[in-house]
Nucleic acid binder design. Structure first.
Lengths: 373, 373
DNA sequence: CTGAAAGCGCTTACAG
DNA sequence: CTGAAAGCGCTTACAG
């Protein structure tokens, strides 16, 4: 239907008067607004895109008309003209559902009101067609940008490809692995150090350590942070007390079985995430060990599972929702003409002390607590 | 850049020969393919949309060209012309992260290769602007369809609005609350009945029941299924042994405290989901009750938490991934010209017996097991 | 079976 | 500061 060239002489003074000219049930388009405002659609376009080259009076009149008629520019049409969509992708291969959902919510919170939407893309990072799959996804949807979750976020080949495709990205990570504009990160090393200090404060000297899976940067960071904290107080982590893990409950069970069969038995275990810590609980119970009297346990993440273990798990809180929101904002800052807001600091995870840690039983009476730690 | 009107007389015989004519780095468009195939873009369009009105020889030649050049039609442009996007929304206000993530994965699996993508939309169903928020989301993105998760899926005002907007939808639900085309459902009543039978088979007669939250259809279904099964064997559920729950761990704790303070104490508790069952474990432990010797527990969902409780939870498995895949397929079946595949049956959840159920201690010796149940 | 024209709702140069 | 023309990559009538 060709746009009726109606009485351009009439200049609507109020929204109500003009409303009759849009067929009910049809969403108004840029043409409707232009016609009602007696301007070209290019001028309406300028208002939409906040161009400074519009007379204030005109801008205001158009803005009001848009509001009155509930006009919202069509992202599809805008995207086609811009050669870019208003979609943000979230790419991940992460075993932790709680983390994924909370991050999604955080990102959505961060883009609220911006007109952007979130398209999720779980994937298999070890699949042979991983890169081409992501490439197709990004190209087909002409994504404005993507949020990358660990460990996919640590893949530099991937980010190089995204750059080549002209797709913005922000990595969610455990260490500073990119410049501030492309990174939302927690300082895992600091968080783990806090956990180590807590255990040493309680008097533990034989501490077991369950690592994250190879291929996760957090594995390295968490171990490093822990060992550094130990060595700062002259302690060290013997190889016999370090075990592999996979950030899953089952791997926590397996690791705990190994660690708790060592002699002498460790008096405390740090698990690089909560899921694995839950596995340690199961093995401890099975071996008749009481937590924390016979064994102290510390986890990492502070996912809901930590509060529902018994006794409640002492763990390091990873600021998931904040990371999501921040990632979204960084992406939005990449819109042309956007003034970049102050870059967020690298967030510091902090220890949440609950009931799974206590001084070691056998030694609690003969070991001196370090003063003022 | 205007499309160069090049030598239409030359008719490319092979893709290789033609390849040189598309500038490298630029994705081919329908115009490129048309030019290379020496046909109008309308004909290419017909091939894309699988119109029968294309000569087989022509169709084949064009299809090959598309493949050679890695041509994929632009969903944005197609959407603009179709007045509809190739996006599917997932709308939910559900506390269970595991369920949400698995359903997302299931839907994505179901649409794989179709060119559709999934846009997630967590929301607050009790917010005053709930409906208008969803309406804006659907209209702005011109969603092809949406998958509705419980309890949002049970809102008929919502589905009426979607129909009015011309947006397809599929509900994920716990009972038959719509016609087969719009519904992917588990028969919760049957699943719960199985749980009840299992407990009765073991000899339990005093069974506590923790309900789901008001506003969830599953609350009603699960209770009904349970009571029907009991009454079929002449048992009944006394009001004093029924408690409210909210599908959260904390509500499970509160409910268990109530139920376990009744005298005589119930010998078994059915919790309407796994999260609440986890809460029952905590209270039981705190009261010094050993599971299943002093108390049998049955959950519902079979989420990962059930396997990591100790002892492992007997629960009713809800077929989450299957529901997601099926929902996606139903949506795709609504594409014009699509022949509807056989509608899925309503899925039946089934009992997974683990270690949290046993005959009641005090009575196991004097109660006769019902024969052949 | 195939195509030229017009359109989907926006934006980018380019004028003025 | 404002607009007419052309274009983004596709499809829908409408012809033939």
């Amino acid at each position: 239907m060709p746009a009726r060239k109606t009485k351009r002489s009439e200049r609507p003074e109020t929204g109500d008067e003009a409303a009759g000219r849009i067929e009910p049930g049809r969403r108004p388009t840029i043409n409707d607004i232009a016609r009602l405002a007696n301007v070209s659609k290019k001028t309406v376009s300028r208002v939409i895109n906040e161009s400074p080259f519009v007379q204030e009076e005109t801008r205001k009149r158009i803005a009001e008309l848009m509001k009155t008629h509930g006009y919202e520019p069509d992202p599809q049409a805008r995207g086609l003209a811009f050669r870019r969509s208003f979609l943000i992708g979230m790419i991940y291969d992460n075993p932790n559902a709680q983390m994924v959902v909370k991050l999604q919510e955080g990102v959505l919170e961060g883009v609220r009101g911006s007109g952007f939407e979130l398209v999720v893309h779980p994937c298999d990072r070890s699949a042979r067609n991983f890169l081409s799959d992501v490439r197709g996804f990004v190209q087909r949807q002409k994504l404005f940008g993507v949020v990358l979750l660990p460990p996919v976020s640590e893949n530099d080949t991937l980010t190089a490809m995204l750059t080549e495709l002209g797709c913005h990205y922000v990595r969610v990570a455990s260490a500073v692995i990119d410049d501030s504009a492309h990174l939302v990160s927690a300082n895992d090393r600091l968080g783990t150090a806090e956990a180590a200090n807590h255990l040493m404060d309680l008097g533990h000297t034989r501490i077991g350590f369950i690592e994250g899976p190879p291929g996760f940067r957090s594995r390295k960071e968490r171990r490093l942070g822990f060992e550094e904290a130990l060595s700062r107080r002259g302690q060290k982590l013997p190889e016999s007390l370090v075990t592999d893990g996979a950030y899953t409950y089952e791997s926590g069970v397996a690791a705990a079985e190994t660690l708790l069969s060592r002699t002498p038995r460790p008096t405390a275990i740090f698990a690089a995430n909560d899921e694995m810590a839950a596995g340690v609980y199961a093995v401890a119970r099975q071996k008749g060990l009481t937590i924390p009297r016979d064994l102290s346990i510390v986890g990492f993440d502070d996912t809901p599972v930590s509060a529902r273990l018994f006794p409640a798990l002492t763990t390091v809180r990873w600021p998931i929702p904040e990371m999501g929101r921040s990632a979204a904002r960084k992406l939005l800052d990449m819109r042309p003409g956007e003034r970049v807001s102050a870059p967020d600091e690298v967030l510091t995870p902090y220890l949440v002390v609950r009931d799974s840690t206590a001084p070691p039983k056998a030694r609690s009476s003969c070991v001196r607590r370090p003063a003022g730690a």
